[in-house]
Design a protein around this nucleic acid. Structure first.
Lengths: 198, 198
DNA sequence: CGCTAAAAGCAAATAATTTGCGTTAATGGA
DNA sequence: TCCATTAACGCAAATTATTTGCTTTTAGCG
């Protein structure tokens, strides 16, 4: 029961959604998340609580909805000139973002929701970022591992550690990147959508 | 605020805890988890709701508490005679258990709780199981990777996929095991606590 | 511009949570 | 073994959150 694009996109409905999302973001900054309630959010957003109950069902779903928006990447991976550099920089930034209190909370919110569509979205966001790095690598003529290899070898260990109590260290993260770039079979450079010289 | 060992372990308190845990397990079997409420659990367990509120705080914590008990391994990893066999069999069983609806729900419950002590416990359970396999391997004189390498290379990818929407396939799981046993540096056999022939 | 129905508002009814206080019983020391 | 202490429980009243029936607003569309 997510408040997604399958509802009226225009006018008031959209305004309410934006207002509620803003209220959640504001309250999460201001106070402890355990004290954030739907009536409070409703008051802050200037809507009645029943609107939120009917649209989102429970606080958990609303929080997941807000969290996934904040987890959406807002920029392209930095271009360092090499695949290794790109992946290292991106991974370190990703890890830092996710390890932070806010990142952890957002991830928790996304995973705690009954509906796992938001979790899938997060996975898709990450894959897109890595795909961009891979495309750049291929355009340069560099080899690059499969997306799945990067997900398994770099992203999954980082997320697992964050979720299950360990803070992954910078050194560990660098090792993960090194391993996936060297110890796993890399895909030879190949055309992305059109051959490089057609 | 977990209902842990830091409370009176004896008599009534323990009885209440057991009764509440049983009630939760029963209700989760019987009905949809969205309909399970604290007053309902209290009625089923024969205690007053306020007892549960005071001990666990919220439903989420109670569910996490119950889930972590169910995730505790109840048997030693099967001994197949070789490290590879042990790890393969254990991994496949682990993956199957965690991918099932119940496993997913339990993991969600553990991760959704404010208190991440339960998540740490789950991680510790898994490490212990792998450590047992490693010890057996070393006792046989076989090389075996570091626990961390297995966590990063096998466990993390499986859990990541389950949490973020993909069902890891048997083939993929086998590949993970093969990779960690071949492509990562393995630790030479070494005495566990006492030299093999002292 | 008007129709239709989805989404929002409102308020009453229901259910969950918190809280103050008296009671029970686990623990530890005499 | 018995008593003192106090953590944990039970109960009930007060508070707060959630659900629900109905009305009003308004987006989407011919």
């Amino acid at each position: 029961m997510p408040a997604k694009e399958n509802l009226r996109p225009g006018g008031r409905s959209a305004r309410v959604q934006a207002s509620v999302h803003n209220a959640v973001r504001l309250l999460l900054k201001t106070m402890d998340r355990a004290d954030v309630t739907i009536p409070l959010i409703a008051a802050e957003a200037g809507v009645t609580p029943s609107t939120i109950y009917r649209r989102w069902g429970e606080l958990q779903e609303l929080l997941a909805d807000v969290a996934v928006e904040r987890l959406r990447p807002d920029m392209l991976p930095i271009d360092t000139g090499s695949a290794r550099g790109d992946l290292e920089v991106w991974t370190e930034q990703y890890c830092e973002e996710m390890s932070s209190g806010i990142g952890r909370d957002m991830m928790r919110d996304v995973l705690a929701a009954q509906d796992n569509a938001n979790a899938c979205k997060c996975d898709a966001f990450t894959r897109e970022q890595i795909a961009l790095i891979a495309e750049r690598a291929h355009a340069r003529g560099e080899a690059f591992p499969d997306i799945d290899a990067v997900m398994d070898g770099v992203v999954a260990p980082i997320i697992y550690r964050i979720l299950f109590g360990d803070q992954p260290s910078i050194e560990r993260v660098r090792d993960l990147v090194t391993n996936v770039l060297t110890a796993t079979p890399t895909r030879p450079p190949q055309p992305v959508s059109a051959p490089i010289s057609a």
